[in-house]
Design a protein around this nucleic acid. Structure first.
Length: 119
DNA sequence: TCCATGACTCCGC
DNA sequence: CGCGGAGCCATGG
């Protein structure tokens, strides 16, 4: 199983209302230093519905990419005029609270349980 | 096989 | 705090 496939599977497990850092996903996928590659994996998703932010992986399964943020709580693609605001909107609809342009990672960070990791 | 590309991070200033 | 630079490493050509 490729690194990207692991990333997609892991991101799919993040429940609505919770977020995770790129680095966190990298660790959970077995490559602690590959945070950047996690972002690259999400960038490779195929956009399906631009308005609702739906994107799928190569297998056609939807991936909640909006739940992955920088460790600082900032939206990684903030510079993107479309995806930046979209990501924040999607997260706020799930109950994530933004203070200025960042979230409180301490409060919203998600970590899988042992059971969830068995997958 | 080598090389460029990056939705990242850590560190120093 | 913010900024720039260096390190990181999975992919694809």
């Amino acid at each position: 199983m490729s690194f990207r496939a692991k990333v997609y599977d892991m991101v799919r497990q993040i429940p609505a209302g919770r977020v995770c850092g790129y680095g966190d996903i990298a660790v959970l996928c077995g490559s602690p230093r590959a945070a950047r590659q996690v972002g690259y994996a999400l960038a490779a998703l195929r956009p399906v519905d631009g308005v609702n932010g739906v994107a799928e992986d190569p297998k056609g399964r939807a991936v909640p990419w909006q739940r992955v943020l920088r460790t600082t709580g900032h939206i990684a693609f903030a510079g993107d005029p479309v995806r930046g605001p979209l990501q924040q909107r999607l997260l706020e609809e799930e109950g994530i609270v933004f203070e200025q342009d960042r979230t409180n990672m301490e409060h919203f960070r998600w970590a899988p349980t042992v059971e969830e990791l068995k997958g």
